[in-house]
Computed example of a mutant assay.
Amino acid sequence: MTAPLDETNGSTEREGRRWRIGTRGSLLARTQSGTIRDALIAAGHTAELVIVQTPGDRSAEPVKDIGVGVFTSALREELAAGTIDIAVHSYKDLPTAPDARFTIAAVPQREDPRDALVARAGMVLGELPAGSRVGTSAPRRSAQLAALGLGLDIVPLRGNLDTRLAAVRDGELDAVLVARAGLARIGRLDAVTEALEPVQMLPAPAQGALAVECRAGDAELIEVLAALDDPATRVSVEAERALLAELEAGCSAPVGALAEVVESLDDDGRIFDELSLRGCAAAVDGSEVLRASVVGSPRDAAELGRALARELVELGARELLTAEPESSSADDFTHPSPMENSR
């Protein structure tokens, strides 16, 4: 179901097509899509947001049960039907298998991909007393947090970002873990009490990045959107998602990855770019976390991701990811939430 928003804005529009950008209705989704609309308008194009309601927006089930695919598939179906021209996704939510109907025409520069802690009384992670209730929607966060051995009570959490922040403010929870990028996009970085470094918690593959998708045969739009692409973000995300695909793990699996384009010096003192990739796979209950890293050429981003995944598999990652947790008591907690989800 789609509904246009009157948010075209700007008087520098060219004559030509009006690009319809599909978005979920949550504040975060509209803000993310709005950055693409604004960039197109700034370049002289005509663009508007079109709200697409997804089955996930109408469900109160935990994300790990309904799957993040319900959020992306509805946008893709509208794209395939021609009711929208562009779909803007949180890249980490997209399936790793390509869909021949569409192309990722742009991957804009990503936000800071780290996870963020929002805790009562301004506390950082190491200051939370044992037994503190920490909410998170992601098995990846739960597993890595449990692996730190801080004695925290980790509870599943559903709802938009305002709902999650309110759970801390109102004393329901002592802290929540969310993506820092989401808070940055809606202007709520003031709530962050600590941004967790990757050595503590590796983010989800492609966290903080957007995927700007259109129909594969729309050559005109592909050319337009190419101007929004950030090559360093694209190769980083390509490596991270190749690792996830090689592990045959879904986007909600307890797998973390982070790639960065870094400058290095050769033997003659000349500067060149390298792609540094770190990855981890964890048991759902946090009883074990496997970590590995690799460095190589950005041109080989996908192969670097696959190679690192194979190294993790040799260390036992596949068995770890498919093992049943010893206890699932955290699943007994259900957090009240509105009918939208901002991950």
Results as ranks from 00 to 15, higher is better:
residue 235 V to G: 10
residue 75 L to A: 08
residue 254 P to C: 08
residue 101 R to P: 01
residue 87 A to I: 06
residue 224 V to W: 01
residue 252 S to F: 03
residue 5 L to P: 03
residue 150 L to T: 07
residue 59 S to F: 02
residue 275 L to T: 03
residue 216 A to P: 02
residue 35 T to A: 00
residue 85 D to A: 07
residue 163 T to H: 10
residue 145 L to S: 05
residue 245 A to V: 08
residue 89 H to T: 05
residue 157 L to M: 13
residue 209 A to L: 11
residue 60 A to Q: 14
residue 202 L to M: 15
residue 331 D to Q: 14
residue 29 A to T: 13
residue 43 A to V: 07
residue 4 P to M: 07
residue 76 R to M: 09
residue 163 T to G: 12
residue 141 R to C: 08
residue 239 A to S: 05
residue 147 A to G: 13
residue 185 R to P: 01
residue 189 L to P: 03
residue 139 P to H: 12
residue 313 V to Y: 04
residue 324 E to Q: 15
residue 173 L to P: 09
residue 114 R to W: 05
residue 141 R to N: 11
residue 132 S to F: 01
residue 169 R to W: 00
residue 120 R to W: 03
residue 171 G to K: 07
residue 84 I to F: 08
residue 64 K to G: 02
residue 337 S to N: 15
residue 215 R to C: 08
residue 158 R to A: 11
residue 228 L to S: 01
residue 178 V to S: 03
residue 169 R to P: 03
residue 214 C to S: 05
residue 118 V to M: 11
residue 87 A to Y: 09
residue 69 G to P: 08
residue 76 R to C: 05
residue 34 G to W: 10
residue 24 R to F: 04
residue 237 V to D: 08
residue 212 V to E: 09
residue 149 G to C: 06
residue 308 L to C: 05
residue 21 I to N: 08
residue 259 A to K: 00
residue 17 R to H: 12
residue 301 A to K: 04
residue 305 G to T: 06
residue 273 D to Y: 02
residue 151 G to H: 01
residue 323 A to E: 09
residue 139 P to R: 10
residue 185 R to F: 03
residue 140 R to I: 07
residue 188 R to Q: 12
residue 20 R to G: 06
residue 192 V to D: 01
residue 34 G to C: 06
residue 211 A to F: 15
residue 199 V to G: 00
residue 330 A to K: 03
residue 291 R to G: 00
residue 78 E to S: 15
residue 161 L to P: 00
residue 228 L to F: 04
residue 333 F to T: 10
residue 318 R to H: 07
residue 291 R to N: 09
residue 266 D to R: 01
residue 96 T to N: 06
residue 266 D to S: 00
residue 244 L to M: 14
residue 290 L to I: 07
residue 44 G to M: 09
residue 313 V to W: 01
residue 67 G to R: 08
residue 167 A to E: 08
residue 307 A to T: 15
residue 174 D to W: 02
residue 257 A to V: 08
residue 169 R to Q: 12
residue 285 D to L: 00
residue 204 A to G: 00
residue 328 S to Q: 11
residue 71 F to W: 11
residue 103 T to L: 09
residue 168 V to L: 12
residue 164 R to A: 13
residue 197 E to P: 02
residue 112 D to G: 02
residue 192 V to M: 05
residue 271 I to V: 13
residue 207 Q to E: 15
residue 3 A to M: 07
